[in-house]
Write a protein that binds this DNA or RNA. Structure first.
Length: 200
DNA sequence: AAGGCGATTGCCT
DNA sequence: GGCAATCGCCTTT
């Protein structure tokens, strides 16, 4: 279990988006630990009209311009958070959106986090594959909000490790989800046949 | 100062 | 498959 270091994150955004698949995202909270294998990502480049960084640095997206290895969390649709891993060098403005993980540790706490504090959820959906199969679901399960935006994944209780799983042959590339500009780019990457991937 | 809309989700038809 | 929920950000007056 090797913790990913700065040099992993400061490479090209597309390379990092692919290489994050199969890695384990870990967040320590007190004595407990939340973890999941990353199974779906999307790359957002600074030259890309779909990227928050396309029109330059603002207060909202400033974490995206930090050095690779930081976290960028944003608020959207008036109710959801989504988490990104910042890539490339300082002031570049590129990141990888984590769209889905396969839960490993802390499933009970994740379930609680997903059911708790959700004004829109009236049912009691406890199916495992709906726990973290989407960017806002992942953020909610791992308790990621604006408060976590800007933290350094190489120097905190939140980090990503390489468990030595080789998923290279399972990677599929496709178009990104939910954007209106930059639709042609196949910068979404996911693991073939994994049940936690948000969309086929 | 105002208005449009979003890197989504869950419920309803 | 369609659409409401809900609010902060950014663009346009």
């Amino acid at each position: 279990m090797k913790k990913l270091r700065r040099s992993f994150y400061t490479r090209s955004t597309i390379a990092v988006a692919k290489d994050l698949l199969g890695k384990i995202f870990i967040r320590k909270i007190g004595n407990s630990s939340l973890s999941g294998m990353i199974v779906e990502t999307e790359a957002y480049l600074h030259t890309d009209p779909a990227s928050h960084s396309y029109r330059g640095k603002t207060e909202r997206n400033s974490a995206m311009f930090d050095t690779g290895g930081h976290l960028y969390v944003y608020f959207t649709y008036g109710m959801h958070f989504c988490a990104n891993v910042v890539t490339s060098n300082k002031n570049t403005g590129e990141a990888v959106l984590i769209r889905a993980v396969e839960p490993i540790e802390g499933i009970e706490m994740m379930t609680k986090n997903r059911l708790l504090d959700d004004r829109r959820r009236h049912s009691d959906d406890r199916r495992l594959h709906t726990l973290t199969n989407g960017p806002a679901k992942f953020a909610q399960a791992f308790q990621l909000t604006r408060q976590q935006s800007g933290i350094d994944l190489t120097k905190s209780e939140m980090f990503i490790v390489d468990a030595g799983v080789n998923v290279r042959r399972m990677i599929v590339a496709g178009v990104r989800v939910g954007i209106s500009a930059g639709k042609g780019k196949k910068w979404r990457f996911y693991l073939k046949n994994n049940p936690w991937v948000s969309k086929k």
